[in-house]
Nucleic acid binder design. Structure first.
Lengths: 347, 347
DNA sequence: AAAAGTTGTACAAGCGCTTGCATAAGTAAA
DNA sequence: TTTACTTATGCAAGCGCTTGTACAACTTTT
């Protein structure tokens, strides 16, 4: 039958001359075990190279020190930075992190949810995939006692869950005000798909800022893209900039599109920021390194990541007796003015 | 005492009217169970919403479907792309991935190794941290029967381990030849710390290419940096470009330094690529988007990631009877010529 | 019809740890 | 010295699953 491969507490117990329960308690620093015994047990464990089997502990205690992270893709600036922080914070709090990339597939999101439930993770931190429009799998996890925290891409349909977001409306509003403040008055907007709450909010914020400033809202200057890729950015910039009535600034709902917009503009001889101001949502690592550098809006990925883990662990450790209060936390964004909208004070 | 929280195979057994062993075998599609029984058992499981406890399985079988990934940091282009692929491939092969960022700390690498051993992962894919100079923790993992695959940053001191790398010497050699081919003849080099094998190899390749081409190797044109950050790149560019005898091309051992070199050069009125050619190692997502776009060397992160997982799983599933043959796999890199070295054919 | 195979299913031990409870040893109070 | 507490340790059950082996109930062979 099975053979035990590694050193276990039975071996330690024998080596130390105590029972396994004493060994277990000693290793877990249980108050009932005397200091002397603990020293002996730990010495024996060290001598034997004992390494506690986390699996067995997990089975026995019915809980694990693992957090599942559901995220669409890792190789995007914001998300990789978010996951970086998630992992770092989790490590500091004694948790490991299982990464699950959904590739924006609802199906895969559900599959992963099952895996995570089967692995009995302590909690899940998730950014909804673009496709996701039903949420039973989240209910399922919660029924199984797995705590969930939602970050960035959330849905009001998932109830009783901590959510950590930015105020997309307000942020877009302020971004627009920044451009206006730089003296641009004919502003175009490149949006993502508005069925995603987040893009709809951003667009609303943009429109509201124009209205408040008394600027015209030209429907021709609002364009939509499904993926806001570099190529899409170029395509849309071409479209917008070939109109008779050209805008003198463009606000794009992500940063990649901003970059391709700038590249295209310069290519056809439009100077940035002199003739055209460009601002993008979502800071990317390269935003600062471009020529000109790109004004953009930093989403606080570090703060979001930290908070997500902290809140999750807080809920995991919450007294099951009293009901935990779920918060929706809205974090501040930061506008980073750079050259691409710097029309006023030349350097 | 403990209370069982979720549906287990006992419940399923009762519901289906079989013993738990039959249920277990039925759910695992064991050949000894009749088709009829399987159908009944699976139906019962579905009715009850049964979800197998992976922890218990793991304890029982002494193996898990989890791969640990040790990596210095997630928010770097190459690594985030590598991890992206690792996760994707692992998922396709039925494995989950635990991410462990070492932040280039040897200490943390060791801590994580212990965690991974305690979690009884099936295997580990690792990129050595910059600091790492002793390797007992890898031996420890292997003693515990955990398979290891090393990627990119490897060490000859770790024996009997599959390694997946690029040929740094050859790649630097070819990169240098590219610059020479573009008509640059006074070439400087910005190296990382040469105690890292990889940086030493790159430097050798560079030097060899100069020698072969009969070009001078000016020691003043070789500079070293510990971290090759953006700021370091600027500092070194400043140093190199302020010499009386200026080079007309610079090869940097990563891409970030290349970008800051270009930025600095342009700032002081040196035209790229006309007056100065710049080429960088390690493609970053922004390399293509810069003005001018940056010639660089793509490390095949996707291929490396795929291979790493495949080889690891292959070894995990290898017959323990016969000895597994560890390979060192060297993958081709790809030089991506862009504007920053395009001195010959102007567009 | 008896012997020898085939199935198909159940029993029970085991994976390595935690933990409620019992018990033994040590100490303070009566 | 006995009783009443503490304090320290051990016993054994249990977490949910896998799996070697035993054993029925059928088939097939001779």
């Amino acid at each position: 039958m099975k053979k035990k491969t590694r050193v276990n507490i039975y071996d330690v117990a024998e080596e130390a001359g105590f029972s396994i329960s004493t060994v277990s308690r000693a290793l877990n620093d249980d108050a009932r075990i005397s200091a002397k015994t603990k020293v002996k047990v730990k010495a024996a464990a060290r001598r034997l190279g004992f390494q506690k089997n986390a699996i067995a502990t997990s089975l026995s205690t019915n809980q694990s020190k693992v957090i599942g992270v559901l995220v669409s893709e890792l190789n995007r600036g914001f998300l990789s930075s978010l996951v970086h922080t998630l992992e770092d914070t989790a490590f500091a709090m004694g948790y490991s992190v299982i990464i699950c990339q959904t590739n924006n597939s609802h199906e895969r999101e559900k599959t992963y949810m099952d895996t995570l439930i089967a692995s009995r993770v302590a909690g899940i931190i998730a950014t909804l995939s673009l496709e996701t429009d039903s949420y039973e799998h989240f209910e399922k996890a919660k029924e199984q006692g797995i705590k969930v925290v939602l970050v960035d891409r959330v849905s009001p349909k998932i109830k009783s869950t901590t959510k950590i977001v930015i105020d997309d409306y307000q942020t877009a509003f302020e971004g627009t005000q920044h451009i206006i403040g730089q003296g641009y008055d004919k502003i175009a907007y490149v949006s993502g798909p508005t069925k995603q709450l987040l893009y709809a909010d951003r667009l609303r914020g943009f429109e509201q800022a124009l209205k408040v400033a008394g600027l015209p809202l030209n429907p021709e200057w609002i364009e939509y893209s499904d993926d806001l890729s570099y190529e899409e950015g170029t395509r849309i910039a071409k479209k917008i900039l070939s109109r008779k009535d050209k805008p003198n600034a463009i606000f794009t709902a992500n940063n990649l599109a901003a970059i391709s917009t700038i590249a295209y503009a310069r290519q056809i001889g439009i100077r940035v920021p002199e003739d055209l101001g460009v601002i993008g949502f979502s800071e990317e690592p390269f935003s600062a390194f471009m020529q000109p550098s790109v004004t953009s809006i930093r989403q606080p990925s570090t703060e979001m990541g930290k908070l997500a883990v902290q809140k999750l662990v807080e809920e995991i450790n919450a007294d099951p007796g009293e009901s935990y209060i779920h918060q929706k936390i809205i974090l501040d964004t930061e506008l980073i003015p750079r050259e691409s909208t710097n029309r006023l004070c030349k350097r």
